[in-house]
Amino acid sequence: MSLLDIFKRRSSAPVARERLQVLLAYERRNRSQPDLVSILREEIMAVIAKHVQIDQDYLQVSMDRGETMSTLEIDIQIPNKSARPLAMAG
């Protein structure tokens, strides 16, 4: 980076404007259901709990919002039976 680059630093206001436009377009659409992620988390948890015993802490739900498409990521860790402490088996 040359000295001139430091002075010519790209103006940040257009970035701010763009980020706000994307974010607010999303937030306005979702005002009626503000916390989709936590609702999904709860319902997914309930379905899984019917079949497997898992800990709340081992369920991660995250959302990555893009301009045209969003990704919902669900990460569930199910403990293996073999991982149980030996004492319990005896």
Binding site: A13, P14, R17, L20, Q21
Partner: peptide, 16 residues
Amino acid sequence: RAARGEMLSIDDVLEI
């Protein structure tokens, strides 16, 4: 600061 592009302009705020 707005003139230097370091701060959202009035037009930006009103448009948003």
